[in-house]
Design a protein around this nucleic acid. Structure first.
Lengths: 226, 226
DNA sequence: TGTACATCAGTGAACGCGCGTTCACTGATGTAC
DNA sequence: TGTACATCAGTGAACGCGCGTTCACTGATGTAC
């Protein structure tokens, strides 16, 4: 069977799309080529007409998943009045639904550690997508200057992603729910208050910060890591 | 060669300790039994005198790594005057050194996603360790009531872990360094200000929050996930 | 105290399964004439 | 327009390597007498 020009592209895209779900669910090493092809309604033999290697698919699937998160945030923002946008994004991100469905969720808590183990060349792609994620969130901090907005976006995303990761480690009981709630409150508070992440230069809000830096440096040298 | 009673325990502990480093570096599926045994100065044949399966070692190594993080935080706290403790912990956690050395670092950003894929029975153990992590940090929020301190600790840890994960995905360039810095600032601001995560009941600081919850719920229903 | 025996942590070869990859083949459809 | 041929996405069997696991064996040291 020979197909039209677009057919191969569509098939390729379908494999990537389906794989991105399974890989987020099971991890980058958790599913075999045969299963991934089966998910796309194909047999494993045809795999190498589309990808140079399994690794190649994994990378495309990671990238696809990150793009989907960015698109989702943009769509939510477009559908929501400005004042509520961040709250909508944070609330849907830190929901039990998202926690319990990693396959259709954000790729960073699900696969971030494995992305970080890719080759430097590959990681450049993901660094760029991470930057886009940050800019997408920073766009909501319209009252802050660009650099401050960027830093607040970083901290907000970190709180979101960290809370989701912790909630997943904690399971799905009371502890896990409380972690999600604490994450929502903290991320929204960060959004509401211009000060914390965007402290004016020279000022040192928590009196400890400056001294602490040197203290910890010497402590870190003396002691083992974790 | 037959050994003294403690010898086997020591060997077992050494395998776990060395494995916990390699697994944090390479991921739960990234290293084989033979290599893990070699790290401990042994050959692969002896493995099953110590563990029922590879999986068993992975779980013990995860647990060991989480315990080490908790110990480290407690030690740093004990070595530091109360006012600076959190700053010391946050600063050393969100350092380039920690980012670039996952093998000796916190297990959650390195292996959290893979922990979350374990069996429910296994995850109970890790949920308990997560709880201990939270309580260890909460102990520094002495001015807040216990529940509020616990929630602030959750949010602080989430920001720390999320920032580290993001920084690792971003690589080790300017973006990555800025993420670490944003995370440090945000985590320390959280530590300095009692209000954000511990808002008095009934009050709604960011006017958006309450309305947003319902908005996002309907939006989340209509749209696909990420 | 000395001797014979039992134990068992550790060795290294071997097994066998799963999985990534290859390959000869198919057959529907595009293209050339 | 119709016919012959070329193409190539997809199939399914087969390959072979790596890795988790097993197993017979070793030999130093504990224990019984």
């Amino acid at each position: 069977m020979r197909y039209s020009k677009e057919h191969k592209l569509e098939t390729h895209a379908r494999i990537v799309r389906k794989a991105s779900v399974r890989l987020r669910e099971k991890g980058a090493h958790g599913v075999g080529v045969a299963d991934l092809m089966k998910d796309a309604g194909l047999t494993h033999g045809g795999f190498y007409a589309h990808f140079a290697s399994r690794e190649q698919l994994v990378i495309e699937a990671f990238a696809f998943a990150m793009d989907r998160s960015i698109e989702r945030w943009r769509r939510l923002a477009a559908e929501t009045p400005p004042a509520e946008r961040l709250a909508v994004i944070v609330t849907s991100y830190l929901s039990p639904t998202h926690r319990d469905d990693p396959g259709r969720g954000c790729a960073v808590p699900a696969l971030g550690a494995e992305i970080a183990r890719e080759s430097p060349k590959t990681r450049k792609v993901f660094a760029a997508k991470m930057e886009t994620m940050i800019e997408t969130i920073a766009a909501e901090f319209i009252d802050a200057p660009p650099k401050a907005a960027r830093k607040r976006a970083m901290a907000t995303l970190a709180t979101m992603m960290g809370s989701l990761l912790m909630a997943r480690v904690a399971g799905s009981g009371e502890l896990s729910d409380t972690i999600l709630q604490a994450g929502r409150d903290a991320a929204l508070a960060m959004a509401a208050q211009p000060q914390p992440a965007a402290r004016p230069r020279g000022a040192r809000k928590p009196a400890a910060t400056a001294k602490a830096a040197s203290t910890s440096r010497s402590a870190a040298k003396a002691a083992p890591r974790p």
